[in-house]
């Protein structure tokens, strides 16, 4: 049953990823990406990292995807048909991207078959207290560094959005 669910999630992830790159409507590919992220969060639960899975949902779905949808909405016209990509011809750089992707996939699958532990899937759940203690002791410096980075992003976004007034 649990193995079946694993393959189900994997299937959703692959299908939605393929749909996301092949659909001509950009907004649909963003929502297909949502399904893909969701399935990946499910796979992360199987990897016994439920904290990462929920963080993944929160950051990618709650943050990045919503920003992307807003970006598409605000940059394009209101009509749905305005957001259409042309994919009639395949140019050289698309072949290059294909080669890179396939080789990355082959390398990863080679390492997976070579080194992955052959254990059965079971769920335990992560100990949040250990994560918290590790963040505030061993990884305190990167943690603080990241928060300073995010704070500066926050401040500069406010500055960029305010600049228009002065220019006019």
């Amino acid at each position: 049953m649990i193995n079946l669910m694993f393959y189900f999630f994997a299937l959703i992830a692959i299908c939605s990823a393929l749909y996301a790159v092949s659909t001509p409507l950009i907004i649909r590919s963003v929502f297909a990406m949502f399904a893909c992220f969701f399935a990946i969060a499910g796979l992360l639960v199987f990897a016994q990292s439920d904290f990462i899975a929920v963080s993944h949902l929160m950051i990618y779905v709650g943050g990045i995807l919503v920003v992307m949808v807003f970006g598409i909405m605000l940059s394009q016209g209101s009509s749905l048909s305005a957001v259409v990509r042309s994919n009639k011809t395949i140019s050289l750089h698309q072949y290059l991207v294909l080669i890179v992707c396939v080789s990355v996939f082959l390398v990863l699958s080679y390492f997976f078959y070579q080194y992955a532990p052959n254990t059965s899937i079971h769920y335990e759940g992560s100990d949040l207290q250990l994560i918290g203690i590790a963040l505030l002791t061993k990884y305190l410096f990167p943690f603080e560094l990241l928060s300073i980075l995010l704070l500066s992003v926050f401040i500069f976004t406010a500055i960029i959005t305010r600049k228009k007034k002065e220019l006019n």
Binding site: S55, M58, G62, S126
Partner: peptide
Amino acid sequence: NIGLFYLLAIVSIEVL
């Protein structure tokens, strides 16, 4: 163990 965190993430899916 992450019940409450999960609930906060769920709300963002409803947004989408």
